[in-house]
């Protein structure tokens, strides 16, 4: 298991390759990448992500550990950035590996659902003339119930 919380950009291709090459018993590796999306008005200048140093790492480790307890995973990778990003920048990625694809897909979805509302990150959208905190969505909380 590898958990990285960092300000710097990451190379999703290199990370996915290294993750796959480190496997020996898996037939499936799933990767998901989260990207900064422009806002509804199409004028997003910057996305600022604040986090809670210390708790962030603990929360991500707890979520990833729970995934390894629920599915037969050979490995899990979580990378999540904080700080300043631009539209189309990569915010985060998860990778999961298992003998079969269903477990790898399900575990990746589980990680994403819990990352959204149980890891202490807060997004702020900056436009030319405003800065607004992104509100959590009820559907994100509802998404946890299926697990």
């Amino acid at each position: 298991m590898r958990i990285l919380v960092q300000e710097a950009p990451f190379d999703v291709g290199a990370e996915a390759k290294a993750f796959s090459e480190g496997l020996s018993a898996s037939g499936a590796a799933v990767t998901f990448t989260g990207i900064v999306r422009d806002n509804a008005e199409g004028n997003l200048v910057e996305m600022l992500i604040e986090h809670y140093p210390g708790m962030t790492e603990k929360a991500l480790t707890k979520i990833a550990t729970e995934a390894t307890e629920r599915w037969d995973l050979e490995d899990v990778l979580v990378i999540h950035r904080y700080g300043s990003m631009k539209p189309s920048d990569m915010i985060m990625m998860v990778a999961t590996a298992s003998r079969h694809r269903v477990a790898a897909f399900e575990a990746a979805e589980f990680l994403m659902d819990f990352l959204k509302s149980r890891a202490p990150f807060w997004k702020q959208e900056i436009t030319k003339d405003s800065a607004s905190w992104v509100a959590s969505k009820e559907e994100d909380e509802d998404a946890l119930k299926r697990w």
């Binding site: 990352l115 509302s117 202490p120 807060w122 959590s136």
Partner: peptide, 10 residues
């Protein structure tokens, strides 16, 4: 003790 709004990660 930490106080914050609902989290918006991912």
């Amino acid at each position: 003790v930490a106080f914050f709004p609902p989290m918006t990660g991912g």
